[in-house]
C-alpha cells in the first residue's frame, strides 16, 4: 500500500474526495462508487451542456469514470479531486470531438426541428424528460432555449471554460490546470466567452438595444 505523504494528508483534510480517491487507488470499489455518486450530477451537467446530447453525455460521463478507475494507480494527491476528474474529462472531450469531426466529415449534420443549433440540437427532445428544467412556463422554455443556443454558439474551449466556471465554480488556476493553459489564457478565454454570450443574449437582457441599433 503506497504511503500517504504529508501534503497528501493535508489535501485529504481540505478535500475529502482526495481521501476517497486515495482509497480508490488502493483498490476500494466502494470508495469509487461514493465518488461517482457525489460527482456524477455536476459532471453530467457539464457534459450535457457541452455536447448537447443527453445520451452522448451519459456515455461520456461513464467513460470518464471508467478512466478515473483505470488510471487510479497514477493518481497523486497534488490537487483537488475534481481537477483530476475534469482533466480526464477534458482530454476525453478533445479526443471525442476530433473523432466526431472525422465522422461528420463523412456525413452532413442533420437539421433539428427545434431550431437548436450546434451541439445542443438534441437537448430539447432527447433528454427523456429527466432533466430538471429551469423552464416552467412557455416564456421560461424560450429563455432556456436561447441560453442553450448561446452556449452552443461558443467556441468549444470557451464553452468548456464557461461550464467549469459556472457548474463547478472553478478558479482560473484550476481551469488552467485542467485545460493545460496559462491562467492568462483562461482569463482571456472567459472574457471572450462572456462577450459572446452577452452579444447572443442581448435581445433578452436588454430588449431595447436591438431597436436602438436598428435606428440610425
Amino acid at each position: 500500500m503506497p504511503a500517504i505523504s504529508e501534503s497528501s494528508a493535508r489535501l485529504s483534510v481540505l478535500d475529502p474526495d482526495v481521501a476517497l480517491m486515495l482509497e480508490v487507488r488502493d483498490g476500494s470499489p466502494e470508495a469509487f462508487a461514493r465518488l461517482m455518486e457525489k460527482h456524477q450530477a455536476r459532471l453530467l451537467g457539464v457534459l450535457v451542456n457541452w455536447s448537447g446530447d443527453r445520451q452522448e453525455a451519459e456515455d461520456l460521463a461513464q467513460e470518464v469514470f471508467l478512466r478515473v478507475y483505470q488510471t487510479r494507480a497514477k493518481y497523486r494527491a497534488t490537487a483537488r479531486f475534481n481537477t483530476w476528474l475534469y482533466t480526464i474529462a477534458s482530454n476525453l472531450l478533445r479526443n471525442h470531438k476530433r473523432d466526431s469531426r472525422l465522422r461528420k466529415a463523412a456525413s452532413p449534420l442533420p437539421v433539428s426541428e427545434s431550431g437548436a443549433i450546434g451541439p445542443l440540437r438534441h437537448l430539447s427532445s432527447a433528454d427523456g424528460g429527466r432533466q430538471e428544467s429551469s423552464a416552467d412556463s412557455p416564456d421560461g422554455e424560450e429563455l432556456a432555449k436561447a441560453v442553450r443556443n448561446a452556449v452552443a454558439g461558443l467556441q468549444e474551449r470557451q464553452r468548456l471554460a464557461v461550464l467549469l466556471n459556472k457548474f463547478e465554480d472553478m478558479s482560473y488556476t484550476q481551469i488552467s490546470e485542467i485545460m493545460n493553459l496559462s491562467e492568462k489564457a483562461v482569463k482571456s478565454l472567459l472574457a471572450r466567452a462572456r462577450a459572446n454570450l452577452r452579444e447572443a443574449l442581448e435581445p433578452i437582457i436588454s430588449p431595447t438595444s436591438g431597436e436602438r441599433r436598428a435606428k440610425p
Binding site: G45, K166, R198
Partner: peptide
C-alpha cells in the same frame, strides 16, 4: 449587461443522472 448575461446561465439544464 455582461453580468446579466452570465446570470442567465442558471437556466442551463441541470440534468439528474440516470
Amino acid at each position: 449587461l455582461t453580468k446579466a448575461a452570465w446570470d442567465l446561465l442558471s437556466h442551463l439544464p441541470k440534468p439528474e443522472p440516470n
